[in-house]
């Protein structure tokens, strides 16, 4: 059973998640104009920057986050930005979109100079997120759980972060049970995606190095 307080928390987080989206202009550019590899690279870096800003705005709305030590706030965001961005992209790509949009976005990523060894795990992750058919509440809470990971580098007060993360996990666990009564493993599957995200984070660092060199 989800308590009234948990329901209020969930609403707050979903509202914040929906409110903070990448600017419409970017989305439009991504879908409308044809670019070569170099322009795709530049566009994707701009979008990535915008996604980090969106992530920060969302995170500021998570109750308790701004009460954490300021440097810990930065450490958490720095440690989770890549994972949260992949998560958001996966959710965008698994949304229902007009015909051809998903293919166009995929093409843009594939033709931006990223080598195939990184593209494969990236798209495999996008696919595995799509298969979960998460509701908005689950997406928003999973993103909050990702940001509030206590063992990121340079986090000093891990216990304070853990308490916040536990609050989110508790709501998410209850929500999964309510949303997917036929699938008792659903919550565990969501947490499994977080492990997959950590692997992607590792790939991402290597990918950036090779991308810059190219």
């Amino acid at each position: 059973e989800i308590t009234k307080e948990q329901q209020a928390l969930m609403k707050l987080i979903v509202d914040a998640y929906n409110k903070h989206q990448i600017p419409h202009d970017f989305a439009k550019k991504l879908l409308q104009e044809q670019y070569g590899a170099e322009e795709n690279f530049l566009l994707l870096t701009e979008v990535a920057t915008s996604q980090v800003q969106v992530l920060v705005e969302f995170t500021k709305s998570i109750p308790g986050f701004l009460s954490l030590d300021h440097e810990d706030q930065i450490a958490l965001l720095k440690g989770s930005a890549v994972e949260a961005t992949y998560l958001r992209s996966a959710q965008v790509l698994s949304k229902k979109m007009p015909t051809g949009h998903v293919q166009l976005l995929e093409e843009r990523i594939r033709k931006s100079g990223i080598s195939e060894e990184f593209i494969t795990p990236m798209f495999s992750f996008y696919k595995s997120i799509g298969e979960l058919h998460m509701v908005q509440e689950e997406q928003a809470l999973l993103t909050a759980v990702t940001v509030l990971t206590p063992d990121r580098p340079y986090v000093k007060d891990q216990q304070a972060v853990e308490r916040l993360q536990e609050t989110m996990l508790d709501v998410l666990r209850k929500l999964c049970a309510l949303q997917h009564p036929q699938e008792p493993q659903y919550f565990a599957r969501l947490l499994g995606r977080l492990t997959e995200l950590r692997t992607l984070n590792h790939y991402h660092a290597e990918m950036l190095t090779s991308w810059r060199t190219n």
């Binding site: 530049l42 920057t49 915008s50 800003q53 920060v56 705005e57 706030q73 930005a81």
Partner: peptide, 21 residues
Amino acid sequence: PASNLGLEDIIRKALMGNLED
């Protein structure tokens, strides 16, 4: 350009609220 700004700078600026910088 934004692509030359480090991740930490982007985060610090966004946390302080001056996105337009």
